[in-house]
Design a protein around this nucleic acid. Structure first.
Lengths: 201, 201
DNA sequence: TTTATATTTATTGTATACATTAAATGGTTA
DNA sequence: TAACCATTTAATGTATACAATAAATATAAA
């Protein structure tokens, strides 16, 4: 049942994480042979991995991307549209158990460890996104995560002020089925995220 | 300067077109060896091509996709969000020469051949999308085209009523910098597209 | 018959060799 | 020196062989 992941998968993860950890510099050219040697596999799985990373936008033309502020703004503009839509669906259709899930995320974010807090806040958004019940939308947002993660220095981001309060406000709007309010709150929330990411850059 | 395309590229195009022409049935399993034989190449470029087709959503789990109405609706919901945003930017920032381009699309659509009309209407949307000046948005819409095309029976779609008039109205709103109106018109335009595609299914 | 377990077959995953193309180097001439 | 071409080197594209896995078929026991 539990399929161990293939050489391609591990290659993908390792290269991705290496990029996140800045083991490879922004703009650095990645060659198949070099990566294959480092990972101890042949070029084939490395090629697979690189193609996947190109899809996500972490690699472009065989080079580690070096996103600009504009790239981040573009990503967030799309994200605001999609998550704005998703949160409307959430406000309309979410049942008590799903709302409960959001509530738990907020609680964890109030008292967990740094790691747990980051995780819970991510989960909060994931739950709302999946409430859209739209696979195209879900996949699109998923694909953008890597670039967002690459841009955001997690150490600093953890201290982003008022984040939990904003989540709470969004949750409250969902609970009260206030679509317009939920959308507006989500958009301004993401806007603040963007601004914080830019200014702590 | 002009790079001839590789075996991977031609494999991609041939398989994609074969899917469009329903040479391969919906849901049919595509195996690498079979395709490689048919195309007269090795498995390697076929794998590349299949991976690209999976990205686009034309293949899923090695099978030709068989999109449902819900899939189409999901795609259009996202498209409405993104093109709605794009047309706002168009209304705000488009210069006379770009507007001229849109005008030409409308003209061609009024008197060209079937082929030209289809092309011009596609171009109309492309120009607006690119006016968003947002690569993330542009790429996202681009990726959705294959599924839309697969779903739309072009023969029938050519007769979609009032399409040109709707484009004209959108163009007029852009010309007058009426953002809200442009967005509303674009969304209802796409909604009619969706409905037409569903009903002519 | 049905279920379960081997055994075979088909398909995909991976490594590697070779072909082709692109990049880099070095030398020659204006 | 700078610009050009030739030659080498590196990198990617493609084919193919072999390995591992998944699917299908056959065989045996309940």
């Amino acid at each position: 049942m539990k399929q161990q992941h293939s050489a391609s998968d591990t290659a993908y993860e390792k290269i991705r994480d290496a990029i996140f950890e800045e083991k490879y510099e922004r703009g650095e050219k990645l060659t198949e042979v070099k990566l294959a040697d480092e990972l101890g596999v042949s070029r084939t799985p490395v090629r697979d991995a690189m193609r996947k990373l190109e899809e996500e936008g972490l690699i472009k033309d065989k080079r580690v991307i070096n996103p600009t502020i504009k790239d981040l703004m573009n990503t967030f503009d799309v994200r605001m549209l999609l998550e704005g839509f998703a949160v409307r669906q959430a406000a309309r259709y979410m049942g008590p158990n799903q709302i409960e899930g959001l509530q738990r995320c907020v609680e964890t974010a109030k008292q967990g460890t740094t790691e747990e807090i980051m995780e819970a806040n991510k989960e909060f958004h994931d739950i709302i996104v999946s409430a859209s019940n739209n696979d195209v939308l879900i996949d699109t947002i998923e694909r953008m995560q890597s670039v967002i993660f690459l841009f955001r220095r997690t150490v600093v981001y953890h201290q982003r002020p008022r984040l939990i309060e904003e989540h709470e406000a969004i949750l409250e709007a969902i609970r009260n089925h206030e679509e317009d309010k939920a959308e507006a709150l989500m958009k301004s929330h993401l806007k603040k995220d963007l601004d914080f990411s830019i200014h702590s850059w």
